[in-house]
């Protein structure tokens, strides 16, 4: 018999050592070993039960289960339950992180994708499709909900160019972004430009000590 749920514990520790917005590589080896540990506990419990059945069939008095056997069975049972719980936590935590990635980064980064197992990638694709359908114009609300966690106060934002990006195509036409130029563009189109460092958001005072943003 292997140590008390130690492998499942190592799984969780491994996942915890990664920061909460990255995944640890899916440790198939340890998950498989945890399953075999559960099987082992199950086999030992069954061995105890069949031993008792055999004695009963041999015509012995149907005896009370003695305390030592009961303790052993409970021990196996608790180990199975513990392993199950740790595995569930492992899967749930990874699922949660995948979901967060869809909301904050919009796509699954290649480095993280390499760490997923097949069914996790499947889950991510399904989740992504459901969310896109909900946000689409045809079937859902027709807004990109992942852009802002709080409702924006204005449709347009003022941004300042940080490097010469040249001409960019925006929904209302073309705009030239050069270092230092300040333009007003729709908030949802500004977001990707801010993220890749082409422009910065200009926080300007509206005269009441608060930024308009």
């Amino acid at each position: 018999m292997s140590a008390l749920a130690a492998r499942a514990r190592d799984l969780l520790k491994e996942l915890k050592s990664y920061s909460s917005d990255t995944l640890s590589p899916y440790n198939e080896e340890l998950v498989r070993l945890t399953f075999s540990e559960i099987d082992e506990h199950n086999a030992q419990t069954e061995a105890i039960v069949s031993e008792m059945r055999r004695r009963q069939q041999e015509g012995e008095e149907p005896q009370q289960v003695d305390e030592v056997t009961a303790t052993t069975m409970c021990l196996h049972y608790e180990c199975i339950k513990r392993n199950k719980r740790l595995l569930l936590i492992y899967m749930n935590e990874r699922m949660q992180r995948l979901r967060d990635m869809r909301w904050t980064q919009r796509a699954l980064p290649e480095t993280q994708k390499a760490r997923c197992c097949q069914s996790e990638i499947q889950f991510y694709n399904d989740y992504s499709r459901v969310l896109s359908t909900y946000m689409s114009r045809a079937e859902g609300v027709g807004m990109d909900l992942t852009l802002d966690t709080k409702p924006p106060k204005d449709m347009a934002v003022t941004v300042r160019g940080l490097k010469d990006a040249g001409e960019v195509v925006l929904s209302y036409g073309r705009a030239t972004i050069l270092t230092g130029t300040t333009i007003s563009i729709p908030a949802e189109e500004a977001e990707p430009l801010i993220r890749d460092g082409t422009v910065e958001l200009v926080e300007w005072d509206d005269g009441y000590g608060r930024n308009k943003q």
Binding site: M1, R9, L12, K13, L15, K16, Q44, I48, D66, E67, V68, T69, A70, T71, T72, L75, R85, L86, L88, I89, N92, E93
Partner: peptide, 24 residues
């Protein structure tokens, strides 16, 4: 479902068996 709660319970405590256990 809490990872921390689960890991906290891994702490070893000195335990005394009342009846004993088989094969472990």
């Amino acid at each position: 479902w809490s990872m921390d709660a689960a890991l906290a319970e891994e702490t070893l405590v000195p335990t005394k068996f009342k009846y004993g256990a088989l094969g472990v």
